[in-house]
Structures are given as structure tokens and as C-alpha cells.
Write a protein that binds this DNA or RNA. Sequence first.
DNA 1: TCTTGACCTAAAGTTAGCTTGAGGAATTAC
DNA 2: GTAATTCCTCAAGCTAACTTTAGGTCAAGA
Lengths: 153, 153
Amino acid sequence: MRASDEMTIGNLARRTGLAVSAIRYYEEQGLIHPERNSGGQRRFRRSDIRRLSFVKIAQQFGYTLPKIATLMATLPEGRTPTKRDWEKISRSFRRTLDEQIQTLEQMRDNLDGCIGCGCLSLKKCRLYNDQDRAARLGPGPRYMMGDRPGDLD
Amino acid sequence: MRASDEMTIGNLARRTGLAVSAIRYYEEQGLIHPERNSGGQRRFRRSDIRRLSFVKIAQQFGYTLPKIATLMATLPEGRTPTKRDWEKISRSFRRTLDEQIQTLEQMRDNLDGCIGCGCLSLKKCRLYNDQDRAARLGPGPRYMMGDRPGDLD
DNA sequence: TCTTGACCTAAAGTTAGCTTGAGGAATTAC
DNA sequence: GTAATTCCTCAAGCTAACTTTAGGTCAAGA
């Protein structure tokens, strides 16, 4: 066995910090495609370390495994990804990250408005109204937080 | 039945945009404490609309139901929360929100560094190294992304 | 060779936050 | 009074991303 290029699952687990069971699960989900030796045991390439590390990072960005799988489909299995490969993906990361940050910042701004008003004057409150707007798609709430047309402020 | 202050579960569902089953579940989790009428059916107060709206908002901030329950434990069941009640909680919201934003911004900065370097030169890469640091608590990865001591850059 | 440790599959369990289904009782509308 | 709603409980199911368990097989070292 050319030890330089083949790894057992336990070895890969140690190198990536993942559990053996997680690696098997990732194979099941199509994220990696190890070969088998004559005895039926999985044998991994060194590039699988890279792939699994990529999975971990993408997960930190909030990607689901299916999404990660499609992202990785654009990456080469065997060779080191080129700068161009990586740039495409990292731009996608950057976009979702920016969106996430923007969402949180908007929530923060809304919240700040509410702190100022004590959030007892709810007809104007952004936090509730933003929610309201989303909910209106369904049979959702007409008047949030107990306020009704005639309610006092 | 004094309709002004008692609501059926279906009514509350319509007013909050929640599913009936979700409201029952929230009761089970101790987020609301409706009374029962003679026939054993739940009867809710108008203030429960407020409580459930609060639950929805806190969920948007990423709080789990148990955490929301403890947050709400500081709120009065019957009366309208005071400005002071609200300020305490909104400060807590603000803190977690700030932390979340900071985490994402750090990830973005790391990512930007990686875009610049093409992320092929991985010994310096923040994205991987931050992950590495976290993983080192366990038996984690020694060399991430396939890099080994002797590997070329 | 024998033993130990690593590996295999398949199925079931885990957590959060609910939804769905079964079987039945209470309420409301006419 | 009766039919249509709405409500009730309890148990099971759902999704994601894994882990755990059970019952074996394979590989490596002395």
C-alpha cells in the first residue's frame, strides 16, 4: 500500500477532526467518494482532507450539506483547486455572508428604535411590524402584541 | 363568556399567525399558561398575544425556546411590561446581536484575506487556522487541507 | 497463529421545534 | 336537535446532521 496517498477512515478522522461516523455519513451524502480495498474497507486520498475541511468551513457559513455538495461539484476531485475555482466559491460565500450581516444589522437598528421608544408604543415598532409584514402573507395577525384598532397607546 | 378577555386557541392562532399545534407545544414548553373552561378547552388572555409575538421575535434573534422561557420569566404574566422590563431584555438582545454580527464580520475579514491569497497558501489562511484552533481542543487535525510539514506551498 | 484494534453495514436513536393522525368530546350555527 | 366546526389528548412522524448499537469482518503485530 502506498501509504503516501491512501488513508484509512480513522486516519482521515484524526487529520480532519471529524468523527468516523460523520465521514461515513458524508460519503452517503455524496460529499466524498472513497475507494475500497480488497477487504471492502474505505481508502481515502489526501485531497479528501481538503474536501472535508471545506465542508466544515462551508457549514460555518451556514450552508447545508446538499448545498455544499453542489458547491463542491464545481471543484476538481483529484487535483488542487485553482485560484479561479476558489474565487468563484469564495465570492458566493462572501455574498451570503454580506446578506447575513445585513439582516442582523437591520434587526439591530430596529431593536435600537424599540429601546428608545420602550416598545410600548407598538404601532410604530419596526420589530413587530417587520414581523407583521411577513406574517400577512398567510392569514397572519392583523394587530400584533395585543393592540386592536381601538386600543390605547 | 366575556369575549373581550378570553380567546380560544384558534382565535389566538389567527391573531398571532401561529399554528394551533405550535401554541399547544409552547404551552407544553412552559411559555404560556392558559386556563381551561368547564369543557376543558384552553382559554387565553389578550396578553398571550403579546407573549407569543415576543417568542417569535426572540426566535428571530436565535434564542431557543428554553432561553426564551427564562427571558420571559422576568416579564409579568398579566400586565403590560414596563419600560424597565423591556429595557433589560432588549439590552440582552442587543448584546447577542452584536456578538453575532461581530462573528460574521470576522469571518468576512478572514474570507477576504483568503480571496486575496487564492487560499492555496494555506498555512497562513485565517479561515482554516481559526478552525484549526477550535479543533485542537480535541484530537483534531494537525495539518489542515492536506498540508503536511514537508508539503510545498 | 492468535489477538487486538480498526473497520464494515444496517437500523435505530438524538435534538429542536414542530406537524400529523387517530379517536373522541365540546361548541357553535341553523 | 343535529350537523359542522373546533377543540381535546396522546403518540408518532418530520428534518438535518449526525451518533449509537448490534453483530460481524479485516488488518496488523507478537
